[in-house]
Design a protein around this nucleic acid. Structure first.
Lengths: 107, 107
DNA sequence: GGCCATACCTAGGAATTCTAGGCATGGCAG
DNA sequence: CTGCCATGCCTAGAATTCCTAGGTATGGCC
């Protein structure tokens, strides 16, 4: 809804947001929304399945906590997750610079 | 194949490439490949349906030509296409800057 | 004559995200 | 003390988008 362009970048967004420290799903969505100045508003139905996928691939780990009577599943980057983030961030930069070259060449 | 990140950006790539002047499908794929330094390698099965979609939305127009015994369908940006390109390019810049904010905030 | 580059096309698959729903707790306003 | 909203988690299936895989046809080169 925010942007179809999120396709292919969701994992990177989550990994990058988690690089700032452990967080739970609901919090991650808010964090990404704030950091992007409201540009990326991720629905919960988007965030949770994506987190499950990242965990099943070993890029993040989770643990349950109870805070104020509410259960939370807190996620944390694994070593492989940090590597994946670095790789995907590099991919993103290459992609963005390709886009800018194609866009700029039109003048 | 080049990048899943192309999702959502294909139309803009084609519109931007066409902004340099009329071109046919095969040529556009090559043009985008070159301008992006090999970053975006679009399959024909990607390019042609996308062009048909752009035409059906009135963003480009086409005309058949025969050059050297080979038929070509040459596409050209319409006025609405130029507007769409400007809008989508602006969207892209907002998106990219959102990405960079989220990525950069992790340090 | 065979092969490759050029040039177009489409149907269906694959991958990804979103919609729409569901469940549960705590706190606050009324 | 009762709604109601924010917090917090989840899933199934729809929707969207691009790619795979296949097909057709011409011209030029060896």
């Amino acid at each position: 809804m925010a942007h179809d362009r999120i396709k292919g970048n969701l994992d990177l967004l989550l990994l990058a947001a988690l690089a700032a420290g452990p967080a739970h799903g609901y919090e991650l969505a808010a964090s990404i929304r704030e950091r992007s100045d409201g540009e990326f508003v991720l629905a919960e139905g988007t965030v949770y399945p994506a987190l499950h996928g990242l965990e099943s691939r070993g890029l993040i780990t989770s643990s349950w906590h109870v805070v104020g009577g509410r259960r939370r599943r807190v996620y944390e980057l694994s070593g492989a997750g940090r590597d994946a983030r670095d790789r995907q961030a590099a991919d993103w930069r290459r992609f963005a610079s390709g886009m800018n070259r194609v866009l700029g060449a039109s003048s």
